[in-house]
């Protein structure tokens, strides 16, 4: 499972989408608020049994950070770069 701060880091071209796997509670808000439907619930579970979100269409990310701002658990954030 990795440490409490293990991050799933996915390049999108212009950004990195980062998911702090252990913090995700699978609420689905990031999936819902993303205007380009980049994210979805993953199949892998963290140590608390939650299927953390994963970028399934990273190339569609526009860097709006709605996922980051709407995540109640500090579990997802966007970094500029990687392009």
């Amino acid at each position: 499972m990795g440490s409490a701060t293990a991050v799933l880091r996915v390049p999108t071209g212009k950004y990195f989408i980062n998911v702090v796997k252990e913090r995700c509670k699978e609420c689905g808000l990031c999936v819902f608020v993303c205007p380009t439907k980049v994210l979805d619930k993953g199949s892998e579970r963290n140590s608390r049994g939650y299927r953390f979100a994963v970028p399934v269409r990273p190339e569609k990310c526009i860097g709006c950070r709605m996922c980051e701002y709407s995540c109640p658990d500090f579990a997802i954030f966007i970094e500029v770069g990687g392009g």
Partner: peptide, 8 residues
């Protein structure tokens, strides 16, 4: 973290 709050 994680916080004590319920998912969502």
């Amino acid at each position: 973290l994680p916080t004590m709050w319920c998912p969502g």
